Amino acid sequence: MKRLLLSVHDVAPCFESEVDRLADLLSGLAGGPRLAMLVVPDHWSRAPVGAAPAFQARLRGWADAGVEMFVHGWTHKDSAADRLGLSGTAALKAKHMTAGEGEFLSLSRTEAARRMRDGKALVEDITGRPAAGFIAPAWLYSDGAKEALVDCGFALAEDHMRVWQPGAEDRPLARGPVITWASRSTARTASSLAFAALARQALHGLQTVRIAVHPGDVTKDSLLRSIERTVTAFATRRAVSRYADLNLI
């Protein structure tokens, strides 16, 4: 069966209205709350979910309705000190693939595991359900972070090009680029719109297509129109599914 996976990233109290809008959009296109939410426990150390009881209630309600809840880092922000330790490919990723948000790109196994465990405990305490998995901010992982996924017992992980079960990275459950959009500059917006248009034509052969949206997407009508066209193009040809529907190894 060909599948479509939908996700809302950066779910945090500071983006509650944006998350509401995106969740309503995706649910309407998917025929129900068949989507995942990626919860940031304390976005940029300014929006702690643990101190937001009303938002916690929203998360429980979404989870009760069937939304899958992933842990999405801890703060979603790296530090200048972290970036100083990067070199080679990792340094290029930090510079070009994210605006200071590659939180797990330079972490040691021990530190990554600490943040993962704390995030997992928070999400599970709030929702009363096991976390669906862990997805690093900007989809960027250090080697230590990938090892920590196994230590923390996450069922699933994801990067730009695949979904895998921790401990079995060489046998992905899904392959292919995630379709996402960028709002932080005119050039990046234009590039993401062009890629989405190409993807609507070129990615139908994939067994699993992934679409990810972010709070910033609601700031530009062009992005919202593209999201609607892209979700519709794939949802009419495949089953809108849960990450848990992937065949676990």
Rank of each mutant, 00 (worst) to 15 (best):
L5G: 00
V8E: 02
V8M: 05
A12R: 00
C14A: 15
F15P: 00
V19W: 02
V19Q: 05
L22I: 09
A23P: 00
A23F: 07
L25P: 01
L29T: 12
G31A: 11
G31L: 12
G31I: 13
G32D: 10
P33D: 13
L35K: 00
M37F: 14
D42H: 13
H43G: 05
W44L: 03
W44M: 06
W44Y: 13
A47R: 01
P48D: 14
V49M: 09
G50V: 09
G50K: 03
A54Y: 07
Q56V: 06
Q56W: 01
R58H: 11
W62T: 02
A63N: 09
D64K: 08
A65G: 07
V67Q: 05
E68S: 05
E68M: 08
F70V: 01
K77H: 08
A80P: 01
R83Q: 06
L84T: 10
G85R: 14
G85D: 14
G88V: 04
A90T: 08
K93I: 09
K95P: 00
K95G: 07
H96E: 10
H96V: 12
M97N: 03
M97D: 03
T98A: 14
T98P: 02
E101Y: 03
F104V: 02
F104M: 08
L105T: 04
L107F: 07
R109Q: 15
T110Q: 14
T110P: 00
A113Q: 00
R114M: 13
M116R: 02
D118N: 09
K120V: 07
A121Q: 14
L122Y: 10
L122W: 12
V123N: 01
E124L: 12
E124G: 08
D125R: 15
D125P: 03
I126D: 01
G128A: 09
A132Y: 01
P137L: 06
A138M: 03
L140H: 06
Y141S: 05
S142I: 03
D143T: 14
A148H: 05
G153C: 01
E158T: 05
W164R: 04
P166Y: 11
P172A: 12
P172V: 06
R175H: 07
G176D: 10
G176V: 12
P177L: 13
V178Y: 12
I179W: 01
T180L: 12
A182C: 10
S183W: 15
R184A: 12
S185T: 13
A187G: 11
R188F: 13
S192Q: 07
F195I: 05
L198I: 05
A199D: 00
A199H: 03
A199M: 07
A199P: 02
L206E: 14
L206T: 02
T208W: 09
T208E: 10
T208S: 08
R210I: 11
A212R: 02
V213H: 02
G216A: 13
D217H: 13
V218G: 05
V218P: 02
K220M: 13
K220T: 06
R225A: 15
R225M: 13
T230K: 06
A235F: 06
T236H: 13
R237F: 01
V240Y: 00
Y243N: 01
D245G: 15
D245Q: 08
N247D: 15
I249T: 11
